[in-house]
């Protein structure tokens, strides 16, 4: 699958934003006044910024509101609802923290849980697609939620959650990589099987149906930069999980430590998300003799 920058930005930023909002909502940090404004503001900016980045790749974004209608079957529609409900649930707590109103934090706790629910719906948009075997398994939601936990903990300046998140992330990335690497082969689809021509003999592409790439090939067959895969995986593991977790445990617990760790984590998250798309192979590629 082609790693579109808008979708990488959307999933990485909104995941981290909802992570921070979860820690703020649950009261792990309870900033007051303008510190609260900037802390909550950062969470909202990342979450909303990420969500709006996702609308950049729409063909007709002016109709985006219609995406709220099909929550009964569509994970994308459920995500739209989950994100709006979560942001609304947390709003009174954010206001209360900023203006010192002392309102009850109950909606904050519910909102914190909803933050993880929202990222779960995001992950299911990908995990539900049977036509992309690498995505079609439980490691995708686990990985997305681990990213949320780690990113949120780093931005909220939480040492132990960041360490637990980092360890969870290493395991989740490892599970996603190892399970994903064999997923396509395990599905057992080949050109011969996809066309049914294996009952005649061994099939190869004789001639493509069109002379230059079409939408399908541009969107779902991405072979250009897979050569960087071997180099990017260590970066993903190191920058997203190992380095930030190590930094917050070993270095002094200073704002700068957490800020640097968060930036490094963000780089690793982007690398990992790029791999998430670039390595995912869609079965339609079989018809073109490419994956």
């Amino acid at each position: 699958m082609t790693p579109a920058p808008s979708v990488i930005l959307f999933t990485v930023l909104s995941g981290m934003g909802f992570g921070l909002l979860a820690f703020l909502g649950a009261g792990f940090v309870q900033p007051v006044g303008w510190v609260a404004f900037f802390h909550w503001g950062l969470g909202y900016a990342l979450a909303v910024g990420g969500l709006s980045a996702a609308t950049f790749h729409l063909g007709n974004p002016q109709r985006a509101l219609r995406a709220f209608t099909q929550w009964q079957t569509s994970w994308l529609s459920r995500e739209a609802w989950a994100s709006v409900v979560t942001l609304l649930l947390l709003a009174p707590v954010a206001l209360s923290d900023w203006l010192g109103l002392g309102w009850p934090r109950v909606t904050g706790l519910i909102g914190a849980v909803a933050c993880f629910g929202t990222v779960f719906t995001t992950s299911m948009i990908y995990a539900q697609i049977a036509a992309v075997p690498r995505w079609n398994n439980w490691t995708v939601p686990v990985m997305f939620l681990s990213f949320e936990l780690t990113g949120g903990a780093l931005l909220a300046g939480q040492v132990w959650p960041a360490l637990i998140g980092g360890i969870a992330l290493i395991l989740a990335l490892y599970a996603h990589k190892t399970k994903g690497d064999v997923a396509f082969a395990k599905r057992g689809q080949t050109l011969g099987k996809a066309t049914g021509l294996d009952q005649v003999g061994s099939a190869t592409v004789f001639e493509q149906p069109h002379t230059s790439p079409n939408y399908l090939m541009r969107e779902m067959i991405y072979v250009v930069a897979r050569k960087h895969v071997a180099r990017l995986w260590p970066i993903a593991f190191g920058a997203a999980a190992i380095l930030p977790a190590g930094m917050v445990v070993l270095l002094p617990h200073h704002l700068l430590t957490f800020a640097m760790a968060a930036v490094i984590h963000l780089t690793g998250a982007a690398a990992s998300r790029w791999l998430f798309f670039a390595q995912a192979e869609h079965v339609v590629g079989l018809y073109y003799g490419q994956r």
Partner: peptide, 24 residues
């Protein structure tokens, strides 16, 4: 009602759907 998100084209294993680049 189509917003042109392209998710249906991803979900189709057969490559039966193409997003029109002019109409979106």
């Amino acid at each position: 009602a189509c917003i042109g998100c392209g998710l249906c084209a991803w979900a189709c294993p057969y490559g039966a759907r193409e997003l029109d680049q002019a109409a979106g």
